[in-house]
Computed example of a mutant assay.
Amino acid sequence: MRVGLIARDAGHPVLAAAAEVLVRRGCAVEVIPPDGVAPSASEAGAGAPSGAGAGAPSGAGELADVYLLKARTPQAIALARELEGLGAVVINSAAATELCQDRVRMAELARGAGLPFAATTPAGRLGELTGPEHPFVVKSRHSRRHDLVAKVDGAMRLRELAGRWPDEEVVIQPYLPGNGWDQKLWVIDGRLFAARRRSELSPASDEPGLAGAWEPPAEVAALALRVGEVFGLDVYGVDLLDGAAEPVIVDVNAFPGVRGRPGAPEALATLALRAAAERERVPAARGR
């Protein structure tokens, strides 16, 4: 069985650990960089899959049995869509991954499905924003690594951010007071992992970190699982405000890192194996 990892960082702890599990179970694991450039040894890290290399995404070779779409750049999504067009199984799908990159579409889908997602309003370019009543939260419209997430509590703060991000397309959300932490829930094929993380809006956010073990209440766990159904995701993260206003979803992430969660690599490997097995059964069923 062949598994393709569409990723720029093959040495990411969860990916590398999942790849090791897959190799032990007899799978061949290939790293397929979305930009066509194989990661260097230093980028891949010591935990990268042994013998990992750039697989053939189209016509040049046989498709892998399943692909894991960790990268979320436009190039990665385009590659995943090409693979799906050739009949490949991609986790998460290109459409679901792309949707989670646009916070306006994300909020519209969530609120339309009755999920308690924070009210999210497109606001154009940050440099042209005059701002509603203060305080509020401003975020990059397009979710990505190192994007903009900030609390605006006055005109001076807005000017400061606009000076640094003048052309950034943004959304605004109402500021909801919390306790300085976010509830982080990750789901892999229906298996839930949870922790609390210092909020990006907290004054202590320069010292990020995960709090100790946290068992979410049943209603929060059910909410996280419902997000996967609504968004069509198998591997995803849900961020909720931790405080008096909960439950309020403030973000959904396709294929997050899930770092430091025991059992996460094994769950990811099991998902890949199951998806590949189901792909094999479908043609056989059609043949009968």
Rank of each mutant, 00 (worst) to 15 (best):
28 A>F: 11
62 E>P: 13
284 A>W: 10
157 R>Y: 05
124 G>P: 05
229 E>V: 07
112 G>I: 12
38 A>S: 14
137 V>C: 03
155 A>Y: 03
10 A>Y: 13
173 Q>C: 04
264 A>M: 03
205 S>G: 10
237 G>N: 05
95 A>M: 07
250 V>F: 09
180 G>V: 02
125 R>W: 04
258 V>Y: 03
201 L>P: 01
241 L>M: 10
245 A>H: 11
128 E>L: 09
75 Q>I: 12
198 R>M: 15
79 L>S: 03
117 F>P: 02
138 V>A: 14
31 V>A: 12
96 A>N: 04
99 L>H: 07
37 V>P: 05
266 E>L: 11
135 P>G: 00
226 R>F: 08
257 G>C: 06
258 V>I: 14
112 G>N: 08
29 V>Q: 03
73 T>L: 06
65 D>L: 08
81 R>H: 10
187 V>E: 00
162 A>L: 06
127 G>D: 02
188 I>H: 14
159 R>H: 11
69 L>Q: 06
172 I>M: 15
282 V>H: 14
30 E>S: 12
68 L>F: 14
165 W>N: 06
163 G>K: 09
30 E>Q: 14
274 R>M: 10
155 A>V: 10
12 H>P: 07
11 G>M: 08
169 E>P: 09
82 E>V: 15
223 L>P: 01
14 V>C: 13
1 M>R: 13
52 A>M: 11
175 Y>Q: 00
9 D>Q: 13
242 D>A: 06
225 L>C: 01
209 G>E: 09
175 Y>R: 01
197 R>W: 05
264 A>L: 04
69 L>V: 09
68 L>V: 11
200 E>L: 11
32 I>Y: 10
57 P>S: 02
119 A>L: 12
102 D>I: 11
212 G>D: 15
286 R>Y: 15
173 Q>I: 01
229 E>D: 09
208 P>E: 13
220 V>S: 05
180 G>A: 05
58 S>R: 11
223 L>R: 00
190 G>F: 03
254 A>N: 00
181 W>H: 13
48 A>F: 09
21 V>N: 08
162 A>G: 06
73 T>V: 03
86 L>H: 07
168 E>N: 05
202 S>E: 08
126 L>I: 01
81 R>F: 04
3 V>Y: 04
3 V>G: 03
69 L>S: 07
146 H>P: 10
109 L>C: 12
174 P>G: 04
228 G>K: 00
259 R>H: 15
122 P>L: 05
255 F>D: 01
285 A>W: 14
219 E>F: 02
209 G>R: 04
118 A>N: 13
15 L>C: 13
101 Q>R: 07
101 Q>N: 13
241 L>Q: 04
118 A>V: 15
75 Q>T: 13
238 V>D: 00
223 L>Y: 00
228 G>M: 00
